[in-house]
Design a protein around this nucleic acid. Structure first.
Lengths: 150, 150
DNA sequence: TACACTAAGTTATAAAAAACAACTTAGTTG
DNA sequence: CAACTAAGTTGTTTTTTATAACTTAGTGTA
């Protein structure tokens, strides 16, 4: 795992400090997709080595994205699951799948609405305006609103 | 840049093969945020070294996410901009910012609807059903629909 | 016109991370 | 009891990154 973290006041950099290491996002996605045990995950992620998977699971558990639990005492067997934080990564996964759908030359997946089987699009819903909106802005959390002020 | 790519039939892995290297996503985000020249980007990305930035820009141009253009002949100066593919990464950036908003202990940004200044949520719009939907599924592109079939 | 300075890198080397392969430990199966 | 599986750990090699110094071309200024 990377020792040197990004030192930037930015959600993206800080998020990458947690999920930005090689294999990390794929491990998380694999758990979300249903793999639970060490070897199940390893088998699906063609090319990952034991020590890296071991390391990533350990750090993800520390970071609170994954939780491991003993599901058999004899022999001791662990299963890995996502925490609430881990599950919320689905927005990132979906954004990547959708980007890939439009921009990869070799694309494997699409995201469909289960009921009607049609592909969906990303949208942003404003609870205040009670509708989807397009005009977005990423702003500093503590920023003072200066709109219209001199 | 990483020589060994993920060899997995998965949009996420393939997308990470393009944008998954250390610093890469941050470079792209910095360009999106308005930095245009080599040193502007370097200045904003505290800690990145010249050779890495140089390498990343070169590969991103090859991958078609960034385009560089001479904006001054004397002295020769380049500026970097995102292509359409590069701009479409905004969905991924937003997903990460929103994840960070809920899950980072130290969060820096939020995403607001420009008009009303309220925070937005991620949603998925189904053009067929003409509404936002929750029940999603990531499916193989060539998958045959077996819903309801024996 | 010489000196310092900026932009945009390149090169060389050191340090860190990842890959690879072999080994371990505990238990189970034939 | 020999072979096999799960879930790792350890040691070594290879790749990536980081750090720092250097280059090239032009500008500004005393």
């Amino acid at each position: 795992m990377r020792e040197s973290k990004y030192d930037l006041p930015c959600n993206i950099a800080q998020t990458l400090n947690i999920i930005g290491d090689r294999w990390t996002l794929l491990v998380l996605h694999e758990i979300l997709a249903g793999s639970r045990t060490f070897n199940e995950i390893k088998k699906e992620l063609n090319g990952i080595s034991s020590n890296i998977l071991s390391d990533r699971l350990k750090h993800l558990e520390q970071a609170g994205l994954v939780i491991s639990s003993l599901y058999s005492e004899h022999p001791p067997r662990y299963e890995y699951n996502l925490t609430e934080s881990g599950n919320e990564l689905e927005g990132i996964f979906n954004a990547m799948i959708l980007w890939g759908r439009n921009n990869l030359e070799k694309c494997y997946k699409k995201i469909i609405h289960t009921e009607c089987n049609h592909e969906v699009e990303l949208a942003y819903y404003c609870p205040h305006c009670n509708q989807n909106v397009d005009e977005l802005e990423a702003v500093e959390l503590d920023a003072v609103d200066t709109t219209g002020l001199k």
